[in-house]
Simulated assay, not measured.
Amino acid sequence: MNKLNNYKKLGKSEIEVSPVSFGCMSLGADQAQNEYLLRQAFEQGINFFDTADLYQKGENEKSVGKALKNIRKQVIIASKVGNQWRPDGSGWDWNPTKAYILQAVEKSLQRLQTDYLDLYLLHGGTLNDPIDETIEAFELLKEQGKIREYGISSIRPNVIREYVKRSHIASVMMQYSLLDRRPEETCLDLLQENQISVLARGSLAQGLLAGKTPKEYLSYSSLEVEKMAKAVAQSTNQNINAAAVAVKYVLGNAAVTTAVLGIRTEAQLKDALQVLHTSPLPTETRQDLARVLPPNIYDQHR
């Protein structure tokens, strides 16, 4: 692997991750294609791969495990827990209990063909959860060596604050983009102060910042979305396209350790690698982009 010098530590841990990580959720059913993309990403500097037991009912973990088995010690694998499939497969229910987490991790390890996870994330979370019990489960798994670090995937400031207060989370995965700047209000500063890594997802806002037809997004009208997409397009140059500009904006926030990009095609991998191998956005460009629209804020779960 072409290891770059801009890898960052995950929280206070010794784990180092690439500034762009491979979101495996988008992978299809073609194992040969999946292996090609995952190995190409690894060869060119991406060392962090994110999956979940929920994706394709566990088939995603199986595909990733098979592809990365021979280089397991050289990669960082994250998976997620908390969504329990119903026996009839009709959907899933939220289950953040200790008993379920301890049972689910065994199945994830089996599917990923590994005896440990580098990072295990709670795949959601509410204030009604048995939070202390959930934390106990993750701490026990750390003691047992089944996981190296744990965190949560959440966009809820009130839930994030509880985990910051009560646990030793290494990271929080959250949606963050030029069209979703809600984390800038309080979450990013709080996490940075506590040396907890932000794993940013949704940096392209469903592709709206990378050329998709404008439509309403969160509190923004389609006209506002179009205005932001144009500003992003105008910030490109011969080295960096619109997708890379949008992701670079997110990575320009000091709280963000890595941008998790969903990859299922060679074109998407190429975009991800462009982000990885080009310079940060100039501060002035970031400031200009931030001024295009008034930032949105959380109206729930504050």
Rank of each mutant, 00 (worst) to 15 (best):
I169D: 09
V20P: 00
H123S: 08
L112G: 03
N237T: 06
L269Q: 12
L102A: 08
G211F: 06
A290S: 13
G262T: 09
V164H: 01
I131M: 07
N83T: 07
E284V: 07
G252L: 02
E216S: 15
S197M: 08
I147T: 10
V105E: 06
L119R: 14
S279Y: 10
D30M: 07
Q300E: 15
V247C: 04
G91C: 11
A272R: 09
D115P: 07
L178T: 00
A244W: 01
L37P: 02
R72N: 08
G65W: 01
L223I: 12
A255H: 05
L251G: 02
K66I: 10
S171H: 05
G11W: 06
Q192V: 01
Q195E: 13
Q56V: 08
F48A: 13
A210L: 04
N47S: 11
N2P: 15
Q40R: 15
L190S: 10
G207S: 08
A137D: 02
R201K: 09
F22D: 01
A29N: 15
L188A: 09
L27E: 06
E136N: 14
A229M: 09
Q268S: 13
V247I: 13
W85F: 13
V75E: 10
Y220H: 10
V20M: 03
L293T: 11
R181D: 00
G45Q: 13
L276I: 05
D299Q: 12
S171A: 15
I131E: 00
L102I: 06
I152E: 04
R72C: 11
T186I: 11
A233N: 06
G23Q: 03
L140Q: 14
T114K: 02
K107T: 14
S222W: 08
S221D: 10
R302C: 11
A267M: 08
F22H: 01
T258V: 05
P96N: 02
M174C: 10
L178I: 03
G82C: 05
H277K: 13
S197E: 08
G58C: 07
I169T: 12
A242F: 00
G202C: 11
F22K: 02
D118W: 10
L68H: 11
Q234Y: 10
Q274F: 00
Y176L: 09
K66E: 11
R181Q: 09
D132R: 03
G262K: 02
V164Y: 02
R182M: 12
E224K: 08
Q238E: 13
R291A: 14
E16I: 05
L293I: 06
L251R: 04
A200D: 02
V250E: 04
E61Q: 12
D129T: 12
L276R: 07
E43Y: 13
L179K: 00
Q44W: 04
I263A: 05
Q192I: 04
I76R: 04
P214M: 12
T257E: 03
S203V: 10
D129V: 10
A41M: 12
